[in-house]
Design a protein around this nucleic acid. Structure first.
Lengths: 183, 183
DNA sequence: AGTTAAAAACAGACCGGTTGGTATGGTGGA
DNA sequence: TCCACCATACCAACCGGTCTGTTTTTAACT
């Protein structure tokens, strides 16, 4: 794999775990086994440029995962349940939700730059669009589909936060049970 | 006001805005107009001890706010709608939700210590307990009340994250509209 | 194919500034 | 006299970022 992709991949992981400010460049180059010169060759504008590249990668990865599940199941309800149970499995096995949420970055966003905020917004937007498409196929009106898709995004993201703070998978499970009520 | 309370109050604000790693001790003592010696006199175990004190203050403040609203309205539905519309007002007026969410701290938590995680968990727990009490008064069973309270906490927290990334109050508004469906 | 120059990729020393934290000494009131 | 309270100077470690120089790859021309 080329160096640039390697940097992005490893940095993405670190950013998800510790947040933007929580990871230093030295930590990144050590994990990648590269030098600082190399990093700044691929990302001349430094750390924040790297972060945005990471968010774009995350965008593709998360989206791909969700799309796959939503194609496999006939209705939004079944797809959502399958998706959440996958999250729960992952959380109970590894004790983390890295790879599925990036709230650690989003919440720092306020003190970061506009491009970062934009990259985050796009990510949420894309996820919501997947939900919405399925909801429209289910026969919901445009307005309803939009509202429900947003509710799904918000509650799942919030539930992941709760799971991480409580060290329990219960919040995600309960959300999953309650979802049908909204549909 | 005594120095210790002053430190906690100002630091709380800063932590909420920029997250734990995003605020330095120098920034704090400058904002408080005190010296480092003074800070370490009141918080001998340093930054993290201060953070936990801040989380406890937040606990009281947020809780007080929510309790007030939930006492003023007869049902969970009305109280929740009032609470969210207050959030929306605040967001549209000031462009921020500081004072109502602390996700910036929660999401960094993974890389912080156990006591910090605990303080965060207690905060969510307390909020949820307020919702739950009201739901029980509304006549829900214990199980249902617990599930709905969790859903409320998660979706509102998630919606706040969405509002901040999109710079729009729409997510909170839509959550508010959809809430009655769960009740 | 062989030569050469340019460009891309990488390495690592180095920069000023900041980090959280400590040690010491002073000051005011009980 | 004592002690909570505060101020200052200082520390090693680390921060993001720049610099110069070396290696490796690519491309062009004979």
């Amino acid at each position: 794999m080329d160096t640039k992709s390697l940097i992005i991949e490893i940095a993405t992981n670190l950013f998800q775990q510790k947040g933007y400010k929580g990871v230093g460049l030295n930590e990144i180059i050590k994990a990648c086994n590269i030098s600082k010169g190399s990093l700044y060759h691929h990302f001349p504008n430094g750390k924040e440029e790297l972060l945005i590249a990471c968010l774009q990668l995350l965008n593709e990865e998360i989206t791909k995962d969700i799309v796959e599940i939503f194609e496999r199941y006939p209705t939004t309800r079944e797809a959502a349940e399958a998706m959440i149970s996958k999250l729960v499995e992952n959380f109970e096995a590894e004790g983390t939700l890295t790879g599925y949420t990036f709230s650690s970055i989003v919440s720092e966003m306020a003190s970061l730059s506009e491009p970062v905020r934009n990259a985050c917004a796009q990510l949420y937007q894309k996820i919501q669009a997947i939900y919405m498409e399925k909801l429209l196929a289910d026969g919901f009106t445009k307005d309803k589909a939009n509202a429900i898709a947003l509710m799904m995004t918000a509650s799942i993201e919030g539930a992941m936060l709760l799971c991480l703070t409580q060290k329990e998978a219960e919040p995600l499970k309960i959300i999953s049970q309650l979802l049908p009520k909204m549909l």
